[in-house]
Design a protein around this nucleic acid. Structure first.
Lengths: 208, 208
DNA sequence: GATATTCTTGACCAATTGGTCAGGATCACG
DNA sequence: CGTGATCCTGACCAATTGGTCAAGAATATC
């Protein structure tokens, strides 16, 4: 598992982070098999054998990236707070998640690529960390619904819908742009406005 | 562009369709670069050089698949009818699209793979056929909204949300299963129920 | 400044992969 | 049944790619 001697030097820190940054670029744009060590090395400003001095294999880089980012990726979900106003809490989650799509599209595509192809390298993470967190928040949502403070609908599918609608703007970026024919990022503003009304309607407990 | 002499024989018809079927399997599961001609050939029950007798290159097979399926893929959207009841028309679209995810997950993943990686081979189709159809339906939706028969929200983003929420069940299948921990396809029933309430709430014109 | 450790590289390798080709097998058809 | 067109294959090729290795360069430490 470990690739380097215990003591982490200055140079190691610098190069490892360079490699991961470059790998994020290359993997997210080309998928695992589409990416080559040569590309990653060039993007990181290192030689190919030098890459392999820091990581034992291409796969190791990929796994390190995915598991390192998983936690950050889940932060927005963690921030849903039991004591808040239900509709606002969930809309806040939607907005945070959309913001992630805007600011970290590479990370989103990295996961998308991996999962579309069967998540061969991160199933454990999905069935562990992720699943538990979803379970926890689902219970909270259910409680809110029971208290009549949120429209009634399956909590886990509601969470799926939030992932889907927000990550869509990162993962399917080229399609969105192709249809809206805008080069800048203005459409993120529109998406934000849309999602807010959309979810406000959908979640309104008056519908229950 | 064309790979074979004008006259299409019985054998050609059989083998070309076998190849495309096999290619759908392999490309959708592994992406373009992840797929090999060897895999496709084996899945089709042909030899590799024989594949290349029917198609000039790996890329040609991929393009043929994508462009051949694009039209079918858009059928559910075409079925939205101007004279119907707005909310029901859109919910019908959601259901049809979800049904596509259930019955044709490979096709969905094929497109997902391609688009996530920048759609290098189908941008023309996106900016052509697809975009026009979306434009047309957006105008219809806008008209419905103006008539007060549908909650007011950006039509194109509404369409995006429908794509996202429904295709999610095909493209991110392993994640959905990993979280719900169900092996069968029962969750499609739940998804259907969820999406129906969800969109019924969101689209209800009473919310305006 | 000696020396042990860490870092870097060019050269190299085996496996994979997309694609070619010459020639043989099979088929359609008069 | 003969013949031309279609179909199929084994052998082969060049390029790419993940990964190794021995040896040299740089760095830390005393």
């Amino acid at each position: 598992m470990d690739t380097l001697p215990p003591r982490t030097t200055r140079i190691q820190k610098k190069n490892v982070s360079r490699i991961l940054e470059a790998a994020l670029d290359v993997f997210s744009a080309n998928g695992f098999r589409g990416a080559t060590l040569e590309q990653i090395a060039r993007a990181a400003g290192l030689s190919k054998p030098n890459l392999l001095y820091y990581f034992p294999s291409k796969e190791a880089i990929h796994v390190e990236l995915l598991s390192g980012l998983m936690s950050t990726w889940l932060d927005p979900l963690r921030l849903i707070h039991p004591s808040g106003e239900p509709v606002e809490e969930l809309i806040g989650y939607v907005i945070r998640k959309l913001e992630m799509s805007r600011q970290f599209p590479r990370e989103s595509r990295l996961f998308a690529n991996e999962i579309v192809q069967g998540a061969p390298r991160i199933m454990p993470l999905i069935e562990g960390e992720l699943r538990e967190l979803v379970e926890e928040k689902s219970i909270l949502i259910r409680r809110w619904q029971d208290a009549g403070r949120l429209a009634r609908m399956e909590p886990r599918h509601l969470i799926f819908s939030i992932w889907a609608t927000t990550q869509h703007y990162a993962d399917f970026d080229v399609q969105v742009r192709g249809i809206l024919s805008e080069e800048d990022e203005r459409h993120f503003e529109d998406a934000r406005a849309f999602l807010e009304t959309f979810y406000r309607n959908a979640l309104d407990p008056a519908r229950g």
